[in-house]
């Protein structure tokens, strides 16, 4: 099966506002795409549409391959220690998270309840789950929020590895994302900039 993510003539509407329209993209293995644009331009909405979690107002999305999503919600049970909360997902994904947690600097935090973790630590935990998931298509919504500079470099490195191994990555971020050969898509160019009548 050829991994692929493509969208044809997408439009997204929120309330009576058209966020973007006429957006098409085609991603093949090894490609990374940086979604940029000001707040409210529809980056998160596009990520959710690409993930199949939201329906576009017009157009269609074609996906070949499993999708992994990291967004602002960590999806980790706040009352459980980090190790147990991650272990739940590791069990479902059939993953061994020892390597990813070590790599993302979480090894010392496994006994700490998730609700005591900082924003950046939770983000790193979500990224550890992402590594364990082994999905060929990565959708990352603001993956750098709350991360320190060392962790930012780490995220850029693991994304580069993922793409080098034939994965697809879509990164929505208003921050710079250093990845060689990364395509850029400025969502503001697809904004009709007017309210629907």
């Amino acid at each position: 099966m050829q991994v692929r993510l493509s969208a044809n003539d997408l439009a997204c509407r929120r309330g009576d506002r058209l966020l973007f329209a006429g957006l098409s993209l085609e991603l093949v293995p090894g490609m990374a795409l940086h979604l940029t644009g000001p707040n409210g331009v529809g980056k998160s909405s596009l990520i959710r549409i690409l993930a199949g979690l939201a329906r576009p107002w017009a157009g269609e999305v074609a996906r070949e391959g499993a999708v992994a999503l990291v967004d602002e919600r960590a999806a980790l049970d706040p009352d459980w220690p980090l190790g147990r909360a991650l272990g739940f997902w590791a069990g479902i994904d059939g993953a061994d998270l020892a390597g990813p947690t070590e790599r993302l600097g979480l090894a010392g935090l496994l006994e700490v309840p998730v609700r005591y973790l900082s924003t950046g630590q939770k983000k790193r935990a979500a990224l550890a789950r992402l590594l364990g998931q082994q999905a060929p298509i990565w959708l990352l919504d603001e993956p750098l929020n709350g991360l320190d500079s060392a962790a930012v470099a780490m995220v850029e490195a693991i994304t580069a590895e993922h793409c080098a191994a034939g994965g697809i990555a879509v990164v929505a971020s208003h921050q710079a994302f250093a990845l060689p050969g990364m395509a850029r898509l400025d969502l503001a160019r697809f904004s009709p900039g007017m309210a629907l009548q």
Binding site: A51, G52, L53, A66, V67, A68, L69, D71, R73, A74, A75, L76, D77, P78, W89, I92, D93, Q133, A135
Partner: peptide
């Protein structure tokens, strides 16, 4: 729903 659990389950085909 608030934690985003349902989204992650949906992506895993549950």
């Amino acid at each position: 729903l608030e934690l985003g659990m349902f989204d992650q389950w949906a992506l895993r085909g549950l």
